[in-house]
Amino acid sequence: MRTHFDVFGLPRAYDVDVPALEKQYRELSLQLHPDRVAQADARERLKALEGTTALNEAFKTLKDPVRRAFYLLKLHGIDLDREDAGAQKDMPMEFLEEVMDLREALDTAMEKKDLARARAMATDVEARKKAALDEAAGALRALEAGGPGADGQVLVKKASHALGRVRYFTRFLEQVDAFEEESLS
């Protein structure tokens, strides 16, 4: 299977040089884009459409550290984007408690229309999200390095738990955003 890393000719790794990736994306777009073959036959144009679609998907995934982490985990067989994924039921108990506490506090702030409180929570959750992503990144780096002694199953589980939290925090922050937009308009 052709991975997003293959599209850019990059080795599979958690760390990506994003400015270099952006430059390469522009160069590849200039070569592949349907605009380059607007006057060509249908086959050429379809090829350009498919090539650029794959390029755009790869770029979107690799330039963003969160998407990149989810993608690497998916390459290891765990797809957290799927609602029915077994991995989601597998989250540890303390995470569920954390979720319930945050949920309750945000609901209270929203009921009271307390925007300042919601913003303060967002700052705190932002920090938690960053920490969780760092934890996932550590596990994914170790997993990709795959040196002797690396226990694949343990690392995958570690990355999966950390990214499960990242995913929850992202949704939480989106809710605060929506609340903020609603309060301001």
Partner: peptide
Amino acid sequence: LLTNEDRQDEVLLL
């Protein structure tokens, strides 16, 4: 840009 091959390398819109 779309019809004139001489200009194809200049600019691209994404």
